[in-house]
Design a protein around this nucleic acid. Structure first.
Lengths: 353, 353
DNA sequence: GGCTGCTACTGTACCGGTAAAGCAAGGAAA
DNA sequence: TTTCCTTGCTTTACCGGTACAGTAGCAGCC
């Protein structure tokens, strides 16, 4: 016995296949009486509605959008900023009944969901420009939206000005009187886990721009700057990196961290060494993740509208998809830059001298 | 001009459509020379590989599995336990190159990804038995795996024994000498935000079983038990609920919370009232989320192997899918119950008197 | 020289739907 | 009465692939 399809049901009821299709997908196309009879027979035969795969092929619409994150998908669930972003995307998609597919991009292996999974479009969030998965998405000619990503003509993008945002954090320290600042960061083109004189060399947009912003404020003020670069943006890494800086003879009086997560690690490192924050050490983060206000002392940081980014990304993608499906030529892609704001809390103060 | 398909490429190269298909999907079926030529022409024509929708239909395989969570999808990204679980699932799927689709289940609206999205199978995580989305997944006859869900014959499941686990936490308080305990929970069939004498009535598996477990230990020991029920499992809610209990005349000497998240709220509530923990109040959570050890005081809780749950769920699903696709009759579904362990930290101690 | 066994391709038959045009019958408008 | 709409169902023509069973050509082998 084969599977039950539209045809099976149609034969049994004695109508055309198309009518059965309409019974499920376009109820207004047939009489209520017939529709009911068809649905009854379908239920009786164990037919559970049009096959999604066939329907997707015929309608050229999948009912799912992709989200491509970093190379490692599981990162999506460890970083609080990523989860906030995804949550916002999810919330926005939820009401449209469209599913959200997380795309991984295992470097090296030939397995690439970005190539093989049915999608109507995708959000690309902070992915390296040379990622193979991104290359596939492009080639598939899907509507895309870039977030925290180098903007490209033709592709709508949503960003903050990381450089300016970072500068306000650094300027805040300068204004407080700090003249020796340590930077705790990640993803730079520099050796890991060692104190070095920082530059702005990185393939990753976000760390690079933030570094530029910090140096924009620190260098002209004649501040001494030392940095530690880590492979991963995590609390453990932040703790280790901050530790290296704090163990220097003549240690910095303030630390700037790439993220609130790394800043949390820095607070830990200070605690490990019984260095009082903000008395003997100021610490500033970036993101204003929920973590920032939970920490003790609460964290001075730069707030970025993560939730709004997700909302906008989803919204922008939906309209791009609609337009693409109508076949109308895409209107010029908007590049949105959202505002950030320095949030001063309890982790920064004047240096002791 | 129509879109570029296999046929377009085939015509151009002068081979059959099937050969082009093989060039992409089964390289061993043709000579390397021809394959290269086909790939070149394809690139030239802007053909970017087999259409996923068509391929999915023809192979009857989607390359994506679903994860159905609570009704509100965005919850998936706010609860640290949910994200840990999803992260583990993601990590496990990642290496197989299979994508993970998050299914929402908007009650009421007719929009149901669970019905319309192509999937090879799905993980159902702590979803009410009467969820419409779950009903659709069932009808579609997809391989399923249940997690934190009432086990059913024929469907592999992964659970912990919430009842016994909760009992160990409550017993711990009893053993310390507490004789007046407050319960901070969620999802019970009881009025919200009011102090009441608890019972075990709930449609939700997890809160119900944990409540049973707590009462198993508390009632026989003659402990006075009061509870507050909230609509949502969140920190804010935990704080409010704990506040209600702590504001009672003759307040409890210890609190049991449904989750570490609610327990965190309870710690906050104590702090608000300058009640010392664990000196004047003991607090115990559940889950052993990363949060538990971050909190001050660090939280006594019941550790459950959340990561392992995710890993196993993904693994179990993958084998179920394989078996289903081979057409072999599914072997009897395993119901796995994982171990839990009481983790005593700094938030519990003997009561004062 | 016939048989066997590759290798490398082709042909046929689906996979399970949907869009859009077609058409018959009945009722309203002219 | 004719014309024109509706309503309600059917017909036709795809959507873009893959599985599987050929088949042709050639080499090896006794």
């Amino acid at each position: 016995m084969g599977r039950v399809t539209l045809q099976t049901v149609a034969d049994r009821v004695g109508v055309s296949r198309m009518t059965v299709s309409n019974a499920f997908s376009r109820p207004d196309q047939l009489s209520a009486r017939l529709r009911e009879r068809i649905l009854d027979v379908a239920a009786e035969l164990g037919y559970c509605g049009p096959d999604p795969a066939a329907r997707t092929l015929a309608r050229r619409r999948a009912g799912a959008v992709g989200v491509l994150l970093t190379d490692s998908l599981s990162y999506a669930f460890t970083d609080e900023i990523a989860t906030t972003f995804l949550g916002a995307v999810a919330r926005e998609l939820e009401v449209t009944g469209i599913a959200m597919t997380l795309l991984s991009s295992p470097r090296g292996s030939g397995l690439t969901p970005a190539r093989d999974v049915v999608l109507d479009g995708a959000i690309v969030y902070s992915v390296d420009g040379d990622s193979p998965a991104l290359a596939w998405l492009r080639r598939r000619d899907l509507p895309l939206v870039f977030v925290d990503q180098v903007a490209e003509p033709g592709i709508p993008s949503i960003n903050i000005d990381d450089r300016i945002a970072a500068r306000t954090a650094a300027q805040h320290l300068v204004d407080l009187g700090h003249r020796d600042v340590g930077i705790v960061t990640q993803g730079m083109n520099a050796p890991y886990e060692t104190v070095y004189e920082p530059d702005t060399d990185s393939v990753h947009l976000v760390p690079r721009e933030r570094m530029k912003g910090w140096l924009d404020a620190l260098r002209p003020a004649g501040v001494r700057v030392r940095a530690v670069n880590e492979a991963v943006n995590g609390e453990v890494e932040g703790r280790r990196a901050a530790g290296l800086l704090l163990d220097q003879p003549d240690r910095p009086t303030a630390l700037l961290a790439l993220s609130d997560l790394m800043a949390a690690g820095a607070l830990h490192a200070a605690e490990d060494r019984t260095i009082a924050v903000p008395g003997a050490l100021s610490v500033a983060g970036f993101d204003d993740s929920p973590l920032a206000s939970r920490l003790r002392p609460s964290l001075t940081t730069v707030a970025q509208p993560t939730h709004e980014k997700g909302r906008l990304a989803a919204q922008t993608l939906m309209t791009a998809i609609e337009r693409a499906q109508e076949g109308s030529t895409p209107s010029r892609a908007r590049h949105q830059v959202l505002d950030t704001e320095l949030v001063v809390r309890d982790s920064t103060a004047q240096p002791l001298n």
